[in-house]
Amino acid sequence: MALVAFAANSVLCRMALSSTQQTTPLIDPSSFTAIRLTTGALVLWLLMLLRPSKTDTNNSTRRGSLFAAGLLFIYAVAFSYAYVLLDTATGALILFAAVQISMMVISHIQGQRLTLLEFIGALLAFAGFGYLVLPGVSAPSLTGLVLMAISGCAWGGYTLLGKQSRQPLFDTGYNFIRTLPLVMVMIGAVWLLSVFAVTEPMSHFILSPLGILLAILSGGAASGVGYALWYQALRGLTSTHAAVLQLTVPVIAALGGVLFLGETISIHLSISACIIFLGIALVILAKPKQIKI
């Protein structure tokens, strides 16, 4: 469910921010990010009210962290601005390539080593990942690539922090709530830049009812609830499993593009999906090494 929510974010964001010579975006990236994070915080706050914590609920400093909130904000902002310049499949591919690299590098530094079967599975999944992007996707915008890579690295760090979570709903909720001051700073900065007209048109405020609805769906369901589910799932996954499982998201997002954005399905997409899932199966079936502390 969490992985489907991740893919839904890519589809919803692209639907809201895409533009052509005939059409304009339904919403600007800063407004999309602000509504997404605010809605996510509100939905999670309501869920926390319905499910009180077993421990002291008055001490919010024990839920989530400022560092995790900062990574969440960086991920969301870079994600939105990148999808102004990238299509659904390309954006998801770049995002989760950066996620896998950052998570595996950090895990390696922390002392987690791959077994032979995990290593083969990871290579196979990456091979399918590369096969998906290279034959059928044109070279992406350099600015979009850099922004999405930054977003992916931030999400990789956020995922690793989530492995330490004992109360996923509350940790995710307070992380979202802590992003709200940063959201206000972002909106103020974009407003000032718009006033002085030193930014590109995509940085100015654009709002439409459908664009606002897409941002609300992204924040309330795909982000708020989806990320709480992901923090819950992380409790039963190793860092390697969590990293490789996320390689399914570009495939799901590509299928979402076919269904909702009019993209065409191809044979190489189907083949790459099979390769990716085979690699994931090898990683999941592999017995992780025991690390002595």
Results as ranks from 00 to 15, higher is better:
A2Q: 00
L3S: 08
A5E: 02
L17Y: 14
L17F: 15
S18H: 01
S19T: 13
S19P: 05
I27N: 06
I27R: 10
D28N: 12
S31V: 13
S31L: 14
F32K: 09
F32P: 12
A41V: 14
V43F: 14
V43M: 15
W45S: 15
L50G: 14
S53V: 00
N58P: 05
R63Q: 15
R63L: 15
F67R: 07
A68T: 11
L72S: 14
Y75C: 09
A78Q: 03
S80A: 11
Y81E: 10
Y81N: 11
V84W: 01
L85G: 03
L86A: 06
T90M: 11
L93Q: 11
A98E: 12
A98S: 15
V99P: 01
S102H: 07
I106M: 07
R113G: 04
L116D: 07
L116I: 13
A122H: 08
A122D: 05
L124T: 09
L134I: 14
G136W: 01
G144I: 06
L145T: 13
M148L: 08
I150S: 03
I150M: 11
I150T: 06
G152M: 04
G152T: 01
A154D: 04
W155D: 05
K163V: 08
Q167Y: 09
P168W: 06
L169M: 03
T172A: 10
G173C: 10
Y174S: 10
N175A: 04
I177A: 12
V185G: 05
V185Y: 15
I187D: 06
I187E: 09
G188V: 09
S194F: 07
V195C: 02
V198L: 07
T199I: 12
E200W: 00
M202T: 03
H204P: 00
F205W: 03
L207D: 13
L207V: 14
S208K: 01
P209R: 03
L210S: 12
G211R: 01
S223P: 02
S223W: 02
G226H: 04
A228Q: 11
A228V: 15
L229K: 07
W230D: 08
Y231M: 12
Q232R: 15
G236S: 14
S239K: 12
S239W: 11
A242F: 10
V244Q: 13
L247V: 08
L247C: 10
T248C: 08
V249F: 06
V251R: 09
V251N: 11
I252M: 15
G256S: 10
G256W: 12
V258Y: 10
F260H: 01
L261F: 00
E263M: 06
S266N: 00
I267G: 08
S272V: 08
S272E: 07
G279K: 07
I280T: 02
A281P: 04
L282A: 02
L285C: 00
K289A: 13
K289N: 14
K289I: 13
K289S: 13
I291R: 12
I293C: 02
